[in-house]
Structure formats: C-alpha cells, structure tokens
Design a protein around this nucleic acid. Sequence first.
DNA 1: GTGGTCTAGACCACG
DNA 2: GTGGTCTAGACCACC
Lengths: 131, 131, 131, 131
Amino acid sequence: MAFEIRILPGSAAPIFRQIVDQVRLAATTGQLRSGEQLPSVRALAERLLINPNTVARAYSELASDGVIESQPGRGAFVSASRQIYTRPERLRRIEPLVNALITEGLSLGFAVEELTDAIRARAAQVRGKQS
Amino acid sequence: MAFEIRILPGSAAPIFRQIVDQVRLAATTGQLRSGEQLPSVRALAERLLINPNTVARAYSELASDGVIESQPGRGAFVSASRQIYTRPERLRRIEPLVNALITEGLSLGFAVEELTDAIRARAAQVRGKQS
Amino acid sequence: MAFEIRILPGSAAPIFRQIVDQVRLAATTGQLRSGEQLPSVRALAERLLINPNTVARAYSELASDGVIESQPGRGAFVSASRQIYTRPERLRRIEPLVNALITEGLSLGFAVEELTDAIRARAAQVRGKQS
Amino acid sequence: MAFEIRILPGSAAPIFRQIVDQVRLAATTGQLRSGEQLPSVRALAERLLINPNTVARAYSELASDGVIESQPGRGAFVSASRQIYTRPERLRRIEPLVNALITEGLSLGFAVEELTDAIRARAAQVRGKQS
DNA sequence: GTGGTCTAGACCACG
DNA sequence: GTGGTCTAGACCACC
C-alpha cells in the first residue's frame, strides 16, 4: 500500500482528526480503493505510537460518515465510494472554512488571488500523491 | 455605525474568537475606520449578553495583533492598518486554513475550481460591505 | 532543568507578564531549548501559588507570540525560534521602552554613556546564563 | 517659553505620567530653569483639553519628588535642581527599565548594539530640544 | 492527565 | 465612566 498515515506531532489538529482527514482524503482521491482493508486499530496505534483509543475514535467517526465499514472481528474496509451529502449540505459544510480563510487571509494582507493560488498549489500537491 | 457585532450561539468558534474575527474583518475592509472608537467592554458585554471578561479577552487579542489600541480609562480605538507579520509568518498562519479547506473540500467531492470560485465569491461579498 | 520561573510579589509587573517575560528571555538566550516541554498550567500554578487561569493566560500570550506551541491534551512546548514581526513593527514595539529608559535615565542624572554601559552589562549577564 | 507640554493621544502612557515625565526631563536638561513658573493647573488643563484633576495629580507627584514647589495661591515653580537620590537609589530605579529593554529587545531579535544605538539616537533627539 | 473557554465577582488605576 | 488583573470554580475536548 502506497498510502501511509502520518501524524505531525507539532500540529494543532488533534490526532484523531488527522487520521480521519487523511483516510477520507485518500478514499476520495482513489489512493485508497473501495474494499481495501485498513490496518487494525491496535496495529495502527502501535505504529504511530499513540493510544489505541485515539485510533478507535477515528475509525468510529469514519464509519459513521460512511467512509469505511468496520466488521467486528474481521477489520475495517473502505466503503464503496458514494456521494453521501446533497449539494446544499456540501456547501453548508464547506462554508465556514471558506469564511475562515477569507477572514484570516484578508486580515493578514493577502490578496484574493494569492489565496486562490495557494489553494491550487496545495491541491496539486495533494493530488500528486495519488497513486 | 452600520457595523454590528453578532454572536452565533450554535457556532463551533468560541465567543471571543467570533468577536476578534468580526472586528478584524471590519477593520480590514474599511467598515471600521482607523481611529474609530469601539463599544466599551462593559457595553458590548451587556448587548451580547456575555461576560465582560470575554469581551476584554477579545479586545486584548485585537490589541496585541495591532488591530486596535486600548487606552485604559479612555476606551478602545481602531489602529491605523499596518502589516505586522513577516511574510514567512503570514504564510505560516494561513497554511493550516488552506490545508483544511483542501482536505475537507476534496473529501466532499468539490473540484479545485469550485473552491477557488467560492473564495472569490465570498471575498467579493465581504469587500462589498465596504462603505 | 536549570530554568525556574519566579514571581516577585512586590513587582509592578502583573504576574502573567512576569511569566511571559521570563519564558521569552529563556527561550531567546537558549536556556530553554526548542522542543522542550514547559511545566503544565496546573503544575506551574500550584508551584507559584497562583490561579491556573493566570498561567493559562501567560501561555496563551506566549503561543500567539510564537514562543511556545500549546497542544491541547499534550502540553506546551518551546517553538523553534523565528522572527515573526516585520522590522517596522519591531521598532514600534521597542520604541516606548527606549523612550522610557531615556526619560527616566536622564531625569535621574545619568549620562547617556552610563545607560548604554548598563545595557551592555545587563545583556552580558543575561547571555551568560546560556547553557 | 520654548517649553511646551504635549499629550500624545495615542500613547499607552497615562496622561498624568506624560506630564510628569516631560516636566522632569525639561527640569533636568535645563529647558526649564530653576525658579521658573509653571502654568496653573486650570490653564494647563484647558490648553491640553484634559481634566484638571489629571494636571493636579501630575503637579502633586512632581512636588513630592522635589522637582517643583507648589505655593498655594501663587502657583507652581521649578525647584533649585539638586540630586535627590543617592547613586544606589538611582541605580535601583533605572534597573527595571534596563531589564525591560533587554528582555523585549533580545526577544524581538535586536542585537545589543542596535539597542545602544537606539538609546544614543533617542538621547540626541531629546537633548537637541534643549534651549 | 493535558490545554481552552466561560462565568461571576472582586479590586485597581485612570479620567 | 474606562480598561486591566486576578481569583474561584465550572465544563469541554483530547490523550
């Protein structure tokens, strides 16, 4: 598997959130294929040197979001990809992040073009990892 | 004053952060002019039905960010706008918001162009409030 | 750790400011190394016999100044040192202290050379603590 | 009189402190001569557009410091200049300002030479006003 | 255990 | 009246 979950120790984001985000993104971009098996809670916790509860919480959130399916005793598997949110719901979910970027960005003195450029650059980076 | 601070009770953002963000954005877009006086700590607390300490904390953060100047015994006033952070620091501060938008946006199934369009649209809205 | 925060009860400086200044200076001189963990909010409050909120406020200011990074649930750690303010902003921040020293110093009858000597002597002392 | 007290409205220093400092400095540098009469409390308050209580407080502090002598009904006069503090006392009084400048200056990334240069430059400015 | 936020209420300096 | 500081005590999210 080319896909490796990584925890950034200096990050402000909580560890369980980092795991959730990485798996969700990988599943969306195709880095993780539908049906693929994730490492077990215990194995991942050991590899990342973190508390198993933290991994369990991440998997639980992923399962309730429909990204993975946990089959007790067998493991966790990537779900068949599907749009789970309607377009209005997706807009509702992205809006606060757009607002935060605008507020912080303009206050820091960035031009709108600099922000959109940064988005494109970062997106290219992320997509580049796609296998 | 056309400018009114509003607290959204259901918001994930803490109250003091909502105040800071609204004042910063208003100062950036020119809705609040340099030299203009803000409502007093106690007055704003009363209007928003929150504790004066919460407002004081917001004002204190705005002062250390150079957005306002607090003059004990006199009041709080909007500063002349200036760039206080170095470019690397500004990039460092905007980066997590760019990452969050990309991660969440792509996971939700948005195309990169949809995200940059949303940024531009929201920025135009915000700038439109400028008096 | 050779580094010990101390509160001077008779000092004009507020408690949270004394903490901020001591940590900032220690981080600058290398007495506190990048990555090093600070005492927890509660532990330091207990040791200094002050309210945890006061320590929390000091840590929060240090974090927004880029001196430390607070990781909820993990602790507070010294950041890699970096220049976060533009040169005009740095001058703006040092100016009132220069003015205060000049005004008070000359009024007390010190010659300018005596003041610069005192600066150099004190700086040497401070740097000497470097490990 | 070449000497004019000026209040900087944007300054963080309290108004009474600004008055005290300017008078003390002027008396030390000879801009105000021994025996010279100061404006009356009411007159100064009117000219500076501030509360008479504030001027009265400044004069009272100056009088208790021996810089001026208030003669009820006649006005306030600059005292004969004299060293009122012993050298150890003068050092004791200047020390916290030296420490503050070092702490803030080094934390901001200034070199010691930059600080002493700033002191010299500012002192030259102040002395230049001398009549 | 960790840090973060909020409330309530007190006291101070300044104008 | 203004803002600034501190205490006490509560609740939350995260590990």
